[in-house]
Amino acid sequence: MTVLLAFDLLLAASIVGLAAATLLMRDAFAMIVAFIVFGMLLALGWARLVAPDVALAEVAIGAGLSGALLLRTLAHLRGGGLSAQGGASVSAPTNGATQGINALLAGLATCALGLAYLGAPQNVPGLEAHVTDAMPESGVTHPVTAVLLNFRAYDTLMEVVVLLAAVIVVWQVERGLAETPAPALGTVYQGFARVALPVAVIAGGYLLWIGAEAPGGAFQAGAVLGAVAVLGLLSRHVRPAPAHRPLARGTFVAGTAIFALVALGVSGAGRETFEYPPAHAKTLILLIEAMVTVSIAATLAALFHGREPVTVATGKETT
């Protein structure tokens, strides 16, 4: 027990230390790497708090894909490579007094939250009794999936809409932006991609299927498949072309569309929206999850690629 307590204290201290290191790193590349390591340790902490679903989502999305997005932007800011120094965009510097007051207020707000957290009753029953009572009607046996796809499905629908909105905004903002060539990857990487990609596809499918009864589900599976697409983009196995745009748009919308159609379709005859008939709940949840997974994977890959594939003036396709 004391060993585990020591591990918890050490891990918590490492998480806080890495958060501070992330903000203090002078080099932007080191800053992003520290942030990715922070996400990994955070996921370990969440595993210690018996939250494996959240740990999976954090390690795949929070650390993995956010890290990839940040590194890709850094490569853009540094003109195509990650090694060059400089290129970090600096906004107007604030003076010392403002900095001091900001730090003081942030510290005070954190202390107030700390007092509130320590004052709140701990280890008392929350909503888990209600969830356990309703589990037989949910169609799945894993509580987190039941909450995400059944009890609080409206939140999840809005979450998928947020992802859709993000890809629309990114395509609009990047319109007409000059293309930065992605860094060339060597033959070692090509070999790695050939081995890793099929394994990752199987892992993603497994996560989707197992989500009904164990930690996993649409978001974790979507993130793993999104990472497969990112690897494909980096290894040039996938070359987005203007002809892919209708397919891409359809895939982005598919998750939201199927989710909303099922939610509306089950309503009527005394049922509310999102109130799946218990006999078909598992089928409907798996249908929604499968479509949402594909949508999330395509959306995350598009967010990584950034620019909408367009025909440039020279008539060559963009990569």
Partner: peptide, 21 residues
């Protein structure tokens, strides 16, 4: 553990990666 905050945090992670992008 209570599964409802877990679902909320998963939603939060996905919203945050959208905002980051």
């Amino acid at each position: 553990p209570d599964p409802v905050p877990h679902a909320l945090v998963i939603t939060g992670i996905v919203v945050m990666v959208s905002a980051t992008a």
